[in-house]
Design a protein around this nucleic acid. Sequence first.
DNA 1: CCTCAAGTGGACGCAGTGTCCGCTTGAGTC
DNA 2: GACTCAAGCGGACACTGCGTCCACTTGAGG
Lengths: 182, 182
Amino acid sequence: MPERADAARNRAKILAAAEELFTTRGAAEVTMEDIARAAGVGRGTLYRRYPDRAAIAVALLDEHERRLQEVLLRGDPPLGPGAPPAERLAAFYTAMVELLERHAPLVLGAEVGHSRFTTGAYGFWRTHVRVLAEAAGAADPDVLADVLLAPLAPELFLHQTSRGTSPDRISAALRHLATQLL
Amino acid sequence: MPERADAARNRAKILAAAEELFTTRGAAEVTMEDIARAAGVGRGTLYRRYPDRAAIAVALLDEHERRLQEVLLRGDPPLGPGAPPAERLAAFYTAMVELLERHAPLVLGAEVGHSRFTTGAYGFWRTHVRVLAEAAGAADPDVLADVLLAPLAPELFLHQTSRGTSPDRISAALRHLATQLL
DNA sequence: CCTCAAGTGGACGCAGTGTCCGCTTGAGTC
DNA sequence: GACTCAAGCGGACACTGCGTCCACTTGAGG
């Protein structure tokens, strides 16, 4: 059965309020209570849908990540299939840094506990990179995939940018890395 | 003035109890109350010295890290000065993985919030790696240093080992990386 | 208009945090 | 050995955020 009208309205209010709070204050400073109040909704209603902050952040990210995943699988080269592995990895890095730049507070919010590696998204990125590493004939692509993804950790990104390093510079360094390794 | 005898005794009891709890249960499952009780000490006493779990974990790690830092600065090659940058980085990776292997729960415990990058230790590792990158003539060693340290994130290490990847394999992959990049 | 399941929201109990302050104790002094 | 007093101690307290529960409300189909 489809979602009831009031339920859909509340879901939208919750997501809008949460996105606003996450990006203005930073995920760590936002409580479930804050989100409920900002959305004009009771705590119970909030918990009915989302068991914790991470779930909300994941829901918010979902759309953006899906879009990139789609492009990786079926888009044009160099992001999509067709280009040599090194170029595809470089393009992937660029896209991910852009994603981080726009949504770092959300990505960080999604990582309550140490959930980063257990979300479906990490698995996807990991598989993608491992396949590229394999195609380039790298030794131990399984471990290399994790290593290549590590510099995209949102905490690191925020640390670097807060220290004054521009996303472009990070992006460039990663592209350089990609061409050297694959 | 020196520390009073009872104070020193309590500090030792606290550190011993905390190390035990951190390693057996995992840092996230340990409360300040737990540590105080296990150490046979009041909460007030605990807070007097350590404002939070992170401070305790940092204190516990301090000794081990100092030893490695000492070797990096003044020890024999390839860890210490003298060897070519790539070899020094490879040796550094090996040493760090070993450190993680022995003390990952502590390292993780030290990272309440996103303190990893603000501790003195991170700054030290970062400087060390940046100097190596510079010596090898790498482009943008400043950013590269962060990138090269990223795969040593304790969350990643724990994730990899819990998935069945042996520390030796991680270590080998990182050494390979070092020789390819510098 | 009626029914009733889906949906709502706030009150409640709990766990952990960090502070405060009256009591205790160690270490110099005579 | 007794005295002093600052350093040290520890438990009580107030507070914040979490997650649940259940009596009430509301939307949609009959």
